[in-house]
Design a protein around this nucleic acid. Structure first.
Length: 562
RNA sequence: GCGGGUGUAGCUCAACGGUAGAGCAUCAGAUUUCCAAUCUGAAUGUUAGGGGUUCGAGUCCCCUCACCCGCUCCA
């Protein structure tokens, strides 16, 4: 975000940089820093009067299009979708079952010499790829048949030559004349020969404990430290180990935990989806890039439950449907892309699945790269199985597919087989979107510098998403115009977010509308009083037209849609 | 967490270690006939916060916080 700030020169045209977008968000009341008057708090953001409308519009569009009016699936049938609203704090066993309690805590090590940081569980892999280790292994293996019982003299020789350049902070480079002990597989060291070699050159014998050197410089690493991304809290007034709980790191588990409740009460049948919006919390190591990586954020998640053998088609369906949805709300240009994950970046539960893809937006701070808006993943039956096991419900958590049962009965399948196959754990396609990231993408997409306008910038939100749909203004604050404008405002405000303003010159009011992204202005002028028409001012084109005073509501309904 | 940088009114910036200011924006009144118009007036600061040096600190020193950049991390 360290882009040149065009505000430094008030005469220079505004540019589409993150600094300028953040400044507009602050100035117009889209986004504020949380607890700003106390100096803020890292990784937390508030939405102001305009921002809350924008984010609500995004979430409501999602809820409307996903839960109320989902389309037809790949099977041609109307999609079955219901919603839930689960608590942020759940029984801590949920996070043991989901794997978050263990998996969200990454042990990290730091290099004391060069200050690099690594994941402790990636250390060996990083070392194998390290330049100085490559050189060392080459030097050692060139000079003997076995890399197990090598001569320590060769290691010392490497240390004073190549090692000095490649790994300046390595133990044996700093202590090249030491008498190295004879490490061998029989001396109690565990693991691969690579390990012994690394422990040897890192001076493990001197430190009295097995330590590994820094992949970058060979320096001494700190003990692994836990970086737990889960927010902890306590339930009840007394804090103790027993009362410890977590703020959810994702909303998905509330859906899985309620799977049985929903199927028992709502008459949904596989394939069907459960949708939820809500806050989630992660102690990110580095909150960065405005609201993009916040520690408190809101998700819009669907868990779509399917027969395992239909995973491919449903995965493809949701991937494309979600991509098109983001297009439909205004992220239509080249800044939106769909990216299929490579196998090696898949989450543990998705390795065997039909795939994972990200819907990504090119934010000013990621450009020319992209940042994730939504992930669509085939989660297999991992979560339901985990909850079946950890809750003790076992097979009771399985879905009973009566349609399948009837079908198999018709085919004359054996009774035992029908009993076994008609109860199963459905697989899951999970489209998981970020509401705050979506809002941020809408803000970035809308931000359009325009030197020809007094405001210098116009926020081109689609009417459906715009925080304010229309401004209703008397051209001048007299001659009966305010009365007519106020009456129109009172008629419209029950249905639409509209604004009434009678102060200052009309040009100033239009300019403010450009910055808040209001797509239409209805201006009551002298002619209105004669022929009952008003001027419509279009934000994007600056063009004006006249329509009947009684047509304004229908005009908005048509333009906003939905 | 590590390293580097930044922090003065809503914004953009001034102020030699010696009384914190300007422009724009905002608000009020007047004016008015379609794009930040004009006139008059008003409000605005614990100089990020705390401590220290000094007769005196926005300015020098230390600590904390926040933000930015790089590293790291990112189910």
């Amino acid at each position: 975000m360290n882009q040149p700030n065009s505000n430094a020169n008030p005469n220079a045209p505004l540019t589409k940089t993150m600094d300028n977008i953040v400044a507009l968000c602050r100035r117009k009341g889209f986004v504020f820093q949380s607890s700003e008057i106390y100096g803020g708090i890292n990784g937390f953001w508030d939405y102001g009067p305009l921002g809350v409308e924008l984010k609500r519009n995004l979430k409501e569009a999602w809820w409307h299009d996903i839960v109320r009016c989902p389309g037809r699936g790949p099977d041609g049938k109307i999609i079955d979708m219901v919603g839930v609203d689960c608590t942020i704090i759940m029984n801590p066993k949920v996070w043991v079952a989901s794997g978050h309690a263990a998996g969200f805590a990454d042990p990290m090590v730091d290099c004391r010499a060069c200050k690099s940081r690594f994941r402790a569980d990636h250390l060996l892999d990083l070392l194998k790829e390290s330049k100085w280790v490559e050189s060392l292994v080459l030097a050692v293996s060139e000079n003997q048949a076995s890399n197990v019982n090598f001569d320590v003299a060769w290691v010392n020789r490497w240390a004073v030559n190549k090692g000095k350049k490649l790994a300046p902070n390595l133990y044996i480079v700093k202590n090249p004349v030491m008498n190295l002990p004879a490490y061998s597989p029989d001396s109690g060291q565990q693991g691969l020969p690579m390990n012994w070699l690394l422990h040897l050159v890192a001076g493990s014998h001197a430190a009295g404990k097995p330590i590994l050197p820094c992949p970058d410089c060979g320096g001494e690493l700190t003990e692994p430290r836990q970086f737990n991304l889960m927010f902890q809290t306590y339930v009840g007034a007394v804090q103790s180990e027993d009362s410890m709980a977590y703020l959810r790191p994702e909303t998905a588990q509330g859906i899985f935990a309620n799977f049985k409740n929903v199927t028992d009460t709502s008459r949904v049948k596989v394939p069907f989806g459960i949708a939820q919006t809500g806050k989630a919390f992660r102690n990110e190591v580095t909150p960065r890039n405005f609201t993009f990586r916040s520690r408190e954020f809101e998700q819009m998640e669907i868990e779509f439950f399917i027969r395992p053998d239909t995973a491919k088609e449903w995965y493809a369906y949701w991937r494309d449907a979600r991509f098109n949805w983001w297009k439909s709300i205004g992220l239509a240009g080249e800044n939106l892309q769909l990216r299929e994950h490579d196998k090696d970046e898949l989450a543990h539960y998705a390795k065997e699945g039909a795939g994972t893809s990200d819907i990504e937006y090119r934010f000013p701070f990621t450009a020319p790269g992209f940042g994730e808006l939504e992930g669509v993943a085939h989660r297999t039956d991992f979560d339901l199985r985990q909850h079946a096991e950890h809750s003790g419900l076992g097979d009771k958590l399985k879905y009973f597919d009566q349609e399948l049962q009837v079908k198999m009965q018709g085919q004359g399948v054996a009774k035992e087989e029908i009993a076994a196959k008609s109860k199963y754990f459905p697989h899951v396609i999970e489209p998981s979107a970020g509401a705050d990231r979506g809002t941020l993408a809408l803000l970035c997409e809308a931000f359009t510098p325009d030197p020809s306008r007094p405001s210098g910038v116009v926020m081109k939100f689609k009417p459906r998403l715009a925080p304010i749909k229309a401004g209703i203004y008397p051209l001048v604050n007299k001659d009966g115009m305010p009365e007519v404008a106020e009456k129109l405002y009172m008629e419209l405000r029950g249905r639409y977010a509209v604004e009434y303003d009678e102060k200052q010159a009309i040009g100033k009011r239009y300019a403010r509308m450009d910055e808040s992204g209001t797509p239409f202005c209805f201006t009551i002028d002298g002619d209105t009083l004669k022929d009952q028409t008003v001027t419509v001012r279009h934000r994007d084109t600056l063009q004006q037209e006249r329509i009947g005073l009684d047509k304004v509501g229908a005009f908005l309904a048509e333009k906003i849609g939905g």
